[in-house]
Amino acid sequence: MIDLLVQRASTYAADIDNLILLITVITGVWFFLTEFVFFGLLWKFRYQEGKPAQYVTGKEKHLKKWINWPHFLVICCDLIIVVAAVQVWYNVKQDMPEVEKEIRVVGQRWAWSFVHPGADAELGTDDDIKTVGELHIVSNEVYKFNLESRDVMHSFSVPVFRLKQDAIPGRVIQGWFEANAIGQFDIQCAEMCGIGHGIMGAQLFVDTPEEHAAWIAANSN
């Protein structure tokens, strides 16, 4: 459903979309059913001359069951949603798969800067490539990101990855993604960070291995 609006570009994007679809179906059924009953009752029991209201206390068993059964069904639906949500959450935020590359993402007012591993594919060596506002990654590789903030809270948000994580000053937060589509996408800051919050975007370039190698070569000195 979400993929009609925003392209999927990471391995877990489909999981999140499917979770959202599941919740949409479950809550949608409940919502339309409830509104249907609601408007139906409004129509059926509208004021009519000579048709007085009934005296109903809510203790009558045959009426109470119309509340009790939906009540239990709601609990069942809730359980399904919880299980699905926790699974997705575990996959994205708790579990860390085998990492192939590492990058540093640094938020500061009001730009994202990125430290990419250079030709040796190792972060923290002399050939690291630093960029501002551009993140270059290879598709189909698991990246671990180390998210930092220099000043205030920021939030590293990549809609096509369905990824969002707050950056907290004084702390390095880890996370992962694996891109599976090629292209250029938006990176946003999703946490209010002051006057320039509205311009704190960056571009994500997901490259093929060849393109990425060429980019590394062009940016190494």
Partner: peptide, 10 residues
């Protein structure tokens, strides 16, 4: 027992 991916710095 939990692999905690985002608790860095905690």
């Amino acid at each position: 027992a939990w692999a905690c991916a985002v608790c860095g710095g905690f």
